[in-house]
Design a protein around this nucleic acid. Sequence first.
DNA 1: CATGAATGAGGGTTCATTCAT
DNA 2: TATGAATGAACCCTCATTCAT
Lengths: 231, 231, 231, 231
Amino acid sequence: MSPTTARKRLTREESRAQTRERLVETAQQLFVSNGYGGASIRDIADKAGYSQGAFYSNFSSKEDVLLELLRRHMEAEATQLFSVMGNEQQEPGQMLAELEAWASTLNHDADWCMLSIELQLHANRSRSFAAEYRKVWDRHRSELGGVIGQLFGKLGRTPPAAPDELAAAFMALSHGLALQRISTRPDPSGRLIMVFLRGLIAGAEDLGTAAAAPAGTPARAPTKRAPKAGR
Amino acid sequence: MSPTTARKRLTREESRAQTRERLVETAQQLFVSNGYGGASIRDIADKAGYSQGAFYSNFSSKEDVLLELLRRHMEAEATQLFSVMGNEQQEPGQMLAELEAWASTLNHDADWCMLSIELQLHANRSRSFAAEYRKVWDRHRSELGGVIGQLFGKLGRTPPAAPDELAAAFMALSHGLALQRISTRPDPSGRLIMVFLRGLIAGAEDLGTAAAAPAGTPARAPTKRAPKAGR
Amino acid sequence: MSPTTARKRLTREESRAQTRERLVETAQQLFVSNGYGGASIRDIADKAGYSQGAFYSNFSSKEDVLLELLRRHMEAEATQLFSVMGNEQQEPGQMLAELEAWASTLNHDADWCMLSIELQLHANRSRSFAAEYRKVWDRHRSELGGVIGQLFGKLGRTPPAAPDELAAAFMALSHGLALQRISTRPDPSGRLIMVFLRGLIAGAEDLGTAAAAPAGTPARAPTKRAPKAGR
Amino acid sequence: MSPTTARKRLTREESRAQTRERLVETAQQLFVSNGYGGASIRDIADKAGYSQGAFYSNFSSKEDVLLELLRRHMEAEATQLFSVMGNEQQEPGQMLAELEAWASTLNHDADWCMLSIELQLHANRSRSFAAEYRKVWDRHRSELGGVIGQLFGKLGRTPPAAPDELAAAFMALSHGLALQRISTRPDPSGRLIMVFLRGLIAGAEDLGTAAAAPAGTPARAPTKRAPKAGR
DNA sequence: CATGAATGAGGGTTCATTCAT
DNA sequence: TATGAATGAACCCTCATTCAT
């Protein structure tokens, strides 16, 4: 930057950005491992290698850094989903494959999931944060809902619930599973859970092939449609 | 209260039990609304109408109350599930109906769900608590898994994943949905989510067949399929 | 208290009262020497020999201890004034003498005066404190005003301003003088100041009469003039 | 601004002066409204439209601005008093009128008075500042004392206390009254207060004599009553 | 058994000040 | 000269916990 020395230490702006970045990352780690309430600014700053004052010259409050994490989370998720919904001409089989690929990424970053939960928990407790969170959440749900709607449409099927509801349920499922990284316990949430259950039943293969469909089988030979779905 | 003496001063033991009971209940309320970390012992004692010392006369630490809540949670859940699994001779339709009834109860007590989440979160952070939690969790999962296994078996279907995995997924779903009482955001958890999704697709009606069903309608048409499904 | 040992350590209540007392006294010292804002709770607690927590189990906030000081200040002042106003049949000379005695006590406790100033300053900055302060101030001013009114009445004179105004002026004078224990600078306040000045002039002896008294001599010989003034 | 160039960019020096000026003014406002301790450099710089660094380019510390304010205060007060003492040949009536005019100006600028108090308070707490303050204070007191001495002299009267003491008392009175802009409470300062009180009594009209004079009326021909009071 | 005063550590936040840019 | 990121100490206050009563 400087005319005389080509490689200077760091621009002021760069330096600030670096500090901010390190603080954000450290904050994420600690929020995930200790919870929002359990992570102190002292700890964040220390672990990031700065003073508490440095934290406050980059963020106006503890909640502020959570908001920054929320923004980043949103962006990253939008990007992820974009590859799935980007191309409207995709065949259903292709969409399913991409959705599966996308879903499997979530498998691999428990931190990412726990952060989601912390964001949600804090939204449940802070009025102001809830407002910001709502925006992100609504947008993401409707994007995912759109993808789901498209998928069902291309398959010539009626979704068993509003696509947005299904989207929310999938998000819920992912959050709940993240919570189980160490322990867990259940309390299913009614209707949507039954919808899923019925779907699973319908989708299950007959033991005998498709033989008897004993008594109550939802009578929709899933094995046949599977190939259609391109799997 | 006592069957023999209609109006009696509380015995020492009863009085102690009452104190404990009130503290436990108040603790639950505050853990749910403020989180485990966000609820102080001072608050719990005050709100229950006792001194902080009374708290420590009944519990050895803050985590100790949480353990008590865990125990009660476990018992209540076991009781709930018992009505579903109790009778091995049930027909599948009946089982489904009972499961649905059971699931719908969860809809109505958000506090119960949030407590589950707090328990899980704390298990993720406290070694000792995790050990206790694990027992409860494992037992509950295998009970629910048993029910699910039975259900699939009676329907003559192969579950699309291990019954215990399905059980965990349903628990996850219910936790995640509880978290959404105010806000949320998603990060699906891979394979299991795809299993659900494929099931739903398979279970969906062909557009041509039951054409009109508006996308947003909640649980539609299951009533029609129900008889077919033999429930 | 205990039936077996006659002289026990300290009742719980006594112990608490002692702690509170020490904290209040230390707070007063530090407010006076460092100002309300300049005295930290850490300092107060440390200097009193307690932890910060002890402070907060006796006072709900920093302002709360200032309120306690306000209450005590009020009581003490009321008591002081009572001896002057108590007896309505007093002769004017006697009243003057008592007023003088009372005034001279103020001379001797600079701390007392500085506390007054801190109270006033804080009332100027805290809405809630101002409300409490107002009560005390109004009551004290009207009591002092009453004394002044009586005095003038008994002397058969018309006060050169409303007695309450004169009272406020005397309080102002005392505050301002307290401020000068180390330094100062002036900015007289208009009408009332002129009233005082005219009064002083009127009350001054003619040069010709009591010839010698050199201009610069402090306040000498007041005892001689006193009888003339009807004391 | 400059006489030669009508519209010019500010020279470096002018720009610096402007920055300094704005900072000083903003500092004064904040010291007055929040107190010296309650006004932060961040606030001062922000409100003045500069960075904190700009503050430190112009002042070496927080106390340094207060010193600048002290200097300006001193100058302004000297100027004010000059019109009163300037002319040694003035008649007493004229002097009184001018003093009254001067005093009444103080009525109208509460900020000015509060700044005086802040200066005094800080002088009571900072050794180094006290030294500077002392100079200003002594000079001002002796100037005002001079005026008072002259006045008494021209009236042919003996001041009831050393003119310098009287001067200090008037300053005190003005400070104390400034403090009362919102609330207050009293602690008279002994002897001087009695001097004032005796003066007022002496200067007051006999009820029988000039009955009507309403209590609150300020200027009531003190020169006439003086002889009546026999002093 | 229950009380609640007291502890000591730690919470989030603000401060006057420094210094590389 | 002016900037503002960073510091480190201090701020007020709350916490889980202890223990004499």
